[in-house]
Every structure is written in structure tokens, then in C-alpha cells.
Amino acid sequence: MRLINRQPSRALTVFLAMLPFAALLIAYSVASEIRLAANPSDRLLPSLSTIGETAVRLFTEPDKRSGRILLWYDTGVSLLRLFIGVFCASFVGLTVGLLIGLLPHVRAMLGVFVAVISMIPPLAILPILFITFGLGELAKVVLIIIGITPFLIRDVSQRVVDIPHELIVKAQTLGASSLVIALRVALPQIMPRLIQSVRLSLGPAWLFLIAAEAIASDLGLGYRIFLVRRYLAMDVILTYVIWITLLAFLIDWLLRVASRKLYPWAGKGL
């Protein structure tokens, strides 16, 4: 039987899915073991149990100076920035993408412009953002917006263009105006795809968030990581990284579930 036709059983599927995680953990433990055996006060690769203890401490014990549990505080602040940024970017991406996809005049005007703008490396203009918007929340949110909006616009407009022409013509023969076609034909068909592209752009959004926080902030997950880097506190950094990964994965999963629940007609995506 050919390899492409062999299907793993259910149990094997679960096992195969776990395998790379287990391999990573084992590889890390072994490396950590070797280093700690050579030097018990090594800080670079703390043992898994040390990371566990640190994690418990970070999640439960309040900061001595402020009395707040910093990890939760960082999480709240960072997620708020991320959500505001991603939400604004989605809104702009959806609106402009729909306009470009549906209206030939807007496409003629903005098509090339957006393609050019999307090539600007967002991090390269971070200093401009800090100078223009100050070091406060606005600059960080704007970096996320600037970072992912062009991608969303391009993706949404392409998906609008990809809507079968037959459907657009059909709507016209039912008397739909341009606005009705946008709201009742294009928008609902685009929504599951928008969620898909938002899921794809969450990775860059996190990147821009952490970059902005690392450079100028006094709270937030990215700020904390770059702060404790000075003390080589790898256990703290690793806890934060795992936490961020978990959050990102959770958001992605929630979006996927929401998309399936809200748009059952769209079929199974990724």
C-alpha cells in the first residue's frame, strides 16, 4: 500500500500528536540535566521542576512592592492592547477590503497603494510611532494595527474578488443595490475568511506587541521578559513564553470554534 493511502488509527493519531511535544520536553530535560550536572548554579537551562516552581510562584504570589500578582496584571494589559489592535485592524481590513474588492474605482485607486504600503516593515517605523504617538498605549496599539492591517486588506479584497461572479450577478437580478450586495452577499461570505486571516495574523500581532513592549513599557508580558533578561532569569522567561504560547493557541482555537459555530455553511477550514 502506498504511504499516501495509509491512515493512522485513532490511538496512533493521539500518540503521534503527542510525540513532538514529548521529544521537545525530553531533549530539554537532558540538556538541562547535563548543564546542571556540570554546574549546579547554571541559570541558562533551569530544570523542569525549577520552571514549575517559578510558574507557581509567578501565578500565585503577589509582588512585594506593589502587592499585585504581576503575571496576571501583565497578561491583562497585553491582551487588552492585542485585542484593541487586532479589532481595529480587522475592522479597517474588512471595510477597505470590501470596498477594494467590490468597487472598481476604489480598486483602481487603492489596489497598488495598499500593495506598496504592505511592504513597509512595521518595526522599521516603530521609532516614528513612538515619536508621533508618545510612549503610551497608543503607539503600541498603532504598531499592531499598522503591522497587520495591510495583510488583512489584501487578503479580504482578494477573497471578495474570488466570490463567484455568478452570485454577484444573481444578486443583481434580484434587484440588489451595491450596498445590499456588499452587506448581504459579500460581507457574510467574507466573515469566515476574515476570521481565518485574523488567525493567521495573530502571530505577527503578538510579535509587534512584544516588540513594542520590550522597547518602551512598564507593564506587559513582553516588558517582563525583557526586564528579567537582565538577571538571566530563564525560569521566568520560559514561564512567560509558555504562557504566551498557551494564550495564543487558546485565542486561535476560540476563533476557529467561533467560525464553525457562526458560519456552519462555510465548511471545515484548517
Binding site: 444573481k170 457574510p188 455553511w265
Partner: peptide, 20 residues
Amino acid sequence: VEPGRERGIVFQRYSVFPHM
């Protein structure tokens, strides 16, 4: 000058709205 309500159309495919 453009399709309208006085002309109905049925295509071979994509003739109904999949999201409704």
C-alpha cells in the same frame, strides 16, 4: 445597462447563496 429584476438567471453552478 446592467442586470436587474426584469431578467432572472439560473447558472449551471453557484446559482444560490451558500450562506443563506
